[in-house]
Amino acid sequence: MNWQRLLRHPSLVIGLGAATAFALLGLISLVWTPYPIEQIVVARRFLGPDPAHWLGTDHLGRDMLSLVMSGTLTSFLVAFSALVIGVGIGVPMGLAAAAWGGAVEWLVLRISDVTFAFPSVVIAILIATLAGPGELNAILAIGIFNIPVFARVARGGALAVATQDYVAAGRLAGLGNAAIAARHLLPNIASLIIVQATIQLSLGILAEAGLSYIGLGTQAPATSLGLMLRDSQSLFLIHPWLGIVPGLTIVLIVIALNIAGDGLRDALDPRLRREGLNHGAG
């Protein structure tokens, strides 16, 4: 693939650009925010947007722009870490299933079945009862949920590739299952994985919001977009702004990621369209 080809897909450019912009906004919060987010000054709460506080202040007098920056980072971080878990465990599982077949494949599918039987909210509830709520809980819950998704994508894609001539040639040349998986299957399903990863990233951000909303995700004094939404919920009729800011941020990030995913899919492999990659997996 080359960049020029990618740039021919405007939705990819817009989506990726917007998503990157949000991610950067979050990353900047690591080194700088207009105000420290732990700094509570009750006397200056519920300020509207003004030059000192571009997005106003929240119910504890914290600067909303700083919170959005830091919250965006948390949301991305949770979704991304969950993605790493899903890809890191799910893809090898799926590849192993395709390359070895037989008992390995059976086992992988059964593990997927069991994992899939636990909706992420349920995993989150179980983990939270054990270890208490927090970002780590959200990461694990969403991450575990991602595993069967990637296992199936990897296995499905690998099986489609496995029938092709060069794989047979490799096998004739004496390559073992592991080598076949690493050298032939993995590179050929990379684009499939990347597209699914974009989708799971956006789902992860939504899932983090949902978990934080029911109190299982990020906890104060850290913040996330979902937690900001939760904190502002009861104040919505009085200070709707406090809910609109994080709500809109979530919506925009998710749209950006989804558009980027659509664009990537078209750009990387037009055939993927028909494989019906879906958002239903969240």
Binding site: F46, G48, F236, L237, I238, H239, P240, W241
Partner: peptide, 9 residues
């Protein structure tokens, strides 16, 4: 404070 209360109103 309370610049806007459109929804409440």
């Amino acid at each position: 404070m309370n610049v806007t209360k459109p929804l409440a109103l």
